[in-house]
Amino acid sequence: MRPDPPIALQRIAQALVLDLASQLSDPFAQQTAGLAATIAAMLAEEWDRAAARLAEENAALRALFAAAADLAPPELAARLRTAAAGEDSDLRVSRLQATNDELRRLLIELHAWCEGQDDPRIAAVNEAIWEELKESTRRRRLVARPL
């Protein structure tokens, strides 16, 4: 799509703030215009990166599962191996998000299991999970802020 959707969304945000909100006298309507502008700015930021962000995270989770599978009990290990062997062949954001949900659900299970173990190799997996969680918040961070 050209003009690029992020640019169109930024223009929408500007129009809402500069052209519309300034003409409104009702405080609630002003707030609604400001919220709409903020959301448009956030969507502008997310539109371009969403697929890359999800694909990167799904790959990171699969790598983590592959490394953890040999240490986990058999049933969990089997599911970790299956998940690690997956790939993102459909690049629509909705499909990537659905896969991400499945992988993050499994991550929660793996994390809870790791916490109950004394083995230093499992402790290393636990630390890797925390690093991944930290990284996941970096991936999701938005520069846009409420107006």
Binding site: H111, E115, T137
Partner: peptide, 12 residues
């Protein structure tokens, strides 16, 4: 709407 691994770790 989606799994929340950070908040689940916090709850534990």
């Amino acid at each position: 709407l989606s799994p929340q691994p950070v908040v689940r770790a916090a709850i534990r």
